[in-house]
Amino acid sequence: MISIENVSKTFTLHNQNSAVIPVMVNANLRVAAGECVALTGASGAGKSTLMRMIYGNYLTQAGRIIVGELDIVTALPREILQLRRETLGYVSQFLRVVPRVATLDVVSEPMLAVGVARDTAHERARELLTRLRIPERLWLLSPLTFSGGEQQRVNIARGFAHEYPAMLLDEPTASLDVANRETVLSLIEEAKQRGAAIIGIFHDEAARKRACDRQIDVSVYTPRAS
């Protein structure tokens, strides 16, 4: 489902003497449908960078990143947008939404974007928010007023609202209590059961072992300072 071949990435800082910083060289990774692969490595090794490259959020200088049928490296913006709407989900560490929009609508939005009827979308949103223990009295408020942990759970509900065939999860269990961590792990398990290919970053080793079938240390792709 996801195939990464000989991928390299550099940052060029034009306003700092055009410094060129290589951050990844010749990365390779394949994830099959129904499989969850963990990215590991020390902070700064490039786990999130690789994830952002797969999502098309960072440009890739060399190699191929195939998700479904599409090569992200050469795809047009509108092809990537369609892939993000239908095929590739991403749960980032931070919630980014229009202010003053109700939580229920924030969670429903990815479903509305693929044409799910509003009632059906709201029903699924309610179900997810209940499972993630967001109290019902908060559903009509904007999640931007919530605590950090609550925001993260809203973000997860939104990420799992549409059943994407491929998913990227950046620290989905960080700063969650035991009960909510269990819920997230079972959401991941359910996604795998229906055949989703998942790439995840988990600091929590126990969670990583439960959710993931194997792990890849991205620091082998980090260029050594010479």
Binding site: F11, H14, N15, N57, Y58, L59, P77, I80
Partner: peptide, 16 residues
């Protein structure tokens, strides 16, 4: 480019 890509990984010096 894609809006989030241009804002998060700008390529041109002026955009940076």
């Amino acid at each position: 480019g894609l809006t989030d890509q241009v804002l998060d990984d700008p390529q041109h010096g002026y955009t940076q």
